[in-house]
Write a protein that binds this DNA or RNA. Sequence first.
DNA 1: TATTTCTACTAAAACGTATTAGTAAAGATA
DNA 2: TATCTTTACTAATACGTTTTAGTAGAAATA
Lengths: 328, 328
Amino acid sequence: MAKSIKEIAQELNVSKSTVSLVINHKAEQARISKELEKRVLDYVKKVGYKPNSLAKSLATGRSNTIGLIVENIGDSFFGPFALYVEELLRKKDYHVLYSSTLGDPQNAQDIIDFMLEKKVEGILLAPTVDLEEHQRKILEHKVPLVVFDRNSPEVATHYVHIDNGDSSLKACSHLQSIGCENFGLVTIDSDQPQMLARKNAYLQFCEETGMQARILHLPYQNLRQKGMTTLQNWVAKNIELDGLFFTTNYLCILGLKSLRTEEGKNFDFPLFSFDDHELFDLLNPKISCIRQPLEPLAKTCVKVLLKEIDRGVSSPKEYVISTDLIKR
Amino acid sequence: MAKSIKEIAQELNVSKSTVSLVINHKAEQARISKELEKRVLDYVKKVGYKPNSLAKSLATGRSNTIGLIVENIGDSFFGPFALYVEELLRKKDYHVLYSSTLGDPQNAQDIIDFMLEKKVEGILLAPTVDLEEHQRKILEHKVPLVVFDRNSPEVATHYVHIDNGDSSLKACSHLQSIGCENFGLVTIDSDQPQMLARKNAYLQFCEETGMQARILHLPYQNLRQKGMTTLQNWVAKNIELDGLFFTTNYLCILGLKSLRTEEGKNFDFPLFSFDDHELFDLLNPKISCIRQPLEPLAKTCVKVLLKEIDRGVSSPKEYVISTDLIKR
DNA sequence: TATTTCTACTAAAACGTATTAGTAAAGATA
DNA sequence: TATCTTTACTAATACGTTTTAGTAGAAATA
């Protein structure tokens, strides 16, 4: 059914080269006559020719595809982010090959290998732990790489991210401004730099204001199982708490769920989330948050990556996107 | 940097065939001696050979990739669904090429063409309007196709879906059982079969119970702009309403947002959503819903598609997944 | 010893495309 | 008319792999 250039050439009694040149709009430059050009074009249209892009990529060395590697395409940050990326790249005639690592380095390795084998022209990566070596591998293959959201400082790459420290300070100030004098921080037991930055800003705020720091580290592994009771116990123990600052939206959701569980013991202090969520403005009490502006984030990632692809790999830079404080 | 089989062969003073056969674990079958096999294997490992999967696919006709086409990878149904699909296929050594149509047939056409050109081995499609022709095209190319969630009845394909009518009846009965005697239906102005099925079940329920049918059709286009006020006016006009049944979760969210807007006029009747949402159990009043079991849905889609790929295209069948009624 | 069988490989073709060097025929130049 | 240009193409090679048919030499058979 699907005809190849070879077949078309035979059926038209011309050479493969002619057909290929015409199809790729190089008829003029190759001095193909207008008549023949039209004959080929018409026939190509008639039989509904579709190029085999594998062969094409093999011959040209270009795949017009970029890889997007995230932790979880199903979550409320990466999903919409991926959509923006796809939209932006569609306009530039690129396609996106996405994949989720689920935080598993083995998955990440497989995905990266797969993408390199597929000859993606560039990779957009939100790294999880222990990915330094893979990043190096990508760079060794001369494949442009842009890292976003998280970063492993040991490998120098282009890095697009929000200002975690500054945003975190904004959050603290907001909580203070609405009357919280003893709010705690709930974060994840992980040394991801963005998490550390958020925590450190909180600590800095404590130091500057003299507020006592109260920090809960929830386990990164099996958060679902242990997280809720740990949080409940912690809140029960620290009765002087009058506000909670969650360093991610999924932690905040977990907080909402666990603090609601014991019907009578509803908390009655403000919650603040780093990262927005579709329904935060519907909840009671309303959740204020830091919102990562997805579109600017995606735009910057795409712009930087495309530039790398166009002009070749350049020396790594950092790109900081500022966040919005959403008061509710 | 990246060596090819050809280079490796030269450097080892053997033929390309030998290297290829060894790499593909066909050394024994091709009577390559153990010693040579080891020599090749060692060298291949040493130089970190990675096959060029474009060339491989071109030669074998297999891409080990399947396409997943949804409306919006960023939404709370398709995102997590996609993750399940990816996980399931990863186990079978397949990779997923996803893409979002955003409901635009032109996008859909481009995406399908792209996927066919990339020689995906099968396609999983949640069709939007006017996709009949594309589905035909896919089938013409002899590419296995499984349609899910929505369906255009004009083209016969494998179709995995939930039982919309039955689920809708369950929803109605539930609302009745908790005391609603005059609940209305809020749906979308679209002739997608699954929406019609949900509506028709409601009508059937009305007929059987004698309840007066009250249906609001919100515009599919620019829902965001017009939806809220339309809904507000409708609810204000129909004062006898004592419950609302939304045919999708995004309509329910819209409902929550618009009915909350006028602070004083909070509604005080139950809402029911077709499709769950991560935060529905946190809202007040709690939202009961029909939940589409994502995992069984994904499992069935993948199973059917892989079977088609394995055994060749077979005559279309329907697969119905039953839903869960979540009472809150 | 002449023939067959086995061993351990390799040569060659194929997948479908892009690209560059080459060429035959016609036209222009001197 | 002999040479140079231009026109309008095509042949050949390359991309990196898989696969099948083939082959030289050794071993076994008769």
